[in-house]
Simulated scan of single mutants.
Amino acid sequence: MKVFVCPSRRPFLVFWTLTLQLILYGCVVFAAEGIDNCKLLYDSKSDRKILKQLEPLINKSFTVENTNEGESYTYVFQLCGDAGGVPGAGVIQVDSKGSEKKTTVIGLYNSTQAIGGSDWMMLIYRNEKRKAFVMISCNRKADMGQLEVLLEEREREQDCFYLFKVESSAVCPALPSKISTGSILLIIGICLLAVYLIGGFLYQRLIVGAKGMEQFPNYNFWVEVGNLSADGCDFVCRSRNREDSPAYRGVPTEALEEEPEERDDHLLPM
């Protein structure tokens, strides 16, 4: 006699449980590392709030090529990540002129300063002799806009600075709701009424097989409610009785007919 033994499902469940835990752990670690990579120069609550709002742009790479007076440079910006693969670099400059590309680090993300307004934010990446200003402005139509070079000051021996601009919806303020609470409740009520009418009509027609006005859901109930409402309105709103009280009947204007005078001549002796 052969006995079939079902394989145990315990190893299978343990495998998928460990896999799910590793995936969740990796996602959390990846997000935390992205934010923590930016070392703020002034670690304040407001600066942390700005970085938190810019979280959708973390580890995104922005590139722009700028040509001026025969010189061509490519700039790469990455928020809280290694721009162009250069460790510690938030903004780099790549000299595209020549056979060998020369890479210069403009700003480091471990020396970041964050400034914010209502619909814009600015990140300042510092290096020993250079500073990069990255202006991120509000554009609701762009999740990640194109990086632009607004100004370059490269002739100084110290404090050379570069001004960049990029548009993103991440810095846009939340739009206030234009629908009031009463309007929301009214919309919900209309939707529920539509579901009730359409669902009841289909049930009465397809399941019950009703025809005509009987297809209306709970037809008998609503008819009775209508009649009772009409009776109540008639009772409350009508001020005149249907029949006048005898005490208030008007005196008839026509003269009463005189009763015929009874004569007793026949009683006299002849």
Rank of each mutant, 00 (worst) to 15 (best):
G182R: 06
S177F: 04
V29G: 00
K102L: 11
N110M: 06
N227D: 10
V64I: 08
R130L: 11
Y162S: 02
K39P: 00
I106M: 03
N59C: 05
P173N: 01
Y109Q: 03
T63S: 08
M1G: 13
C237H: 07
G189L: 13
L268G: 00
K178V: 11
E262F: 14
E254F: 13
L24W: 06
E214K: 14
T19L: 15
N241G: 10
G34E: 01
D47N: 08
I106K: 02
P260E: 15
D47Q: 15
F221Y: 15
L22H: 03
Y25L: 13
C172W: 07
D234F: 12
L268T: 02
A132N: 01
C6V: 14
N127S: 15
T74L: 13
Q53H: 04
N59A: 01
C233F: 14
E259V: 13
A142M: 11
L202D: 01
V29A: 09
A255N: 04
Y75D: 08
Y73S: 11
Y25A: 13
A194H: 05
E153W: 06
I115V: 13
F77W: 10
A142Q: 10
F62V: 05
G34R: 02
Y203T: 04
D119G: 05
R140E: 15
Q146I: 11
V223N: 04
D95A: 08
P217R: 05
V3Q: 07
I198T: 13
Q158N: 11
S169R: 11
C172F: 06
S245K: 04
S229L: 12
E33A: 03
S168F: 05
K102M: 06
P217E: 07
C138T: 02
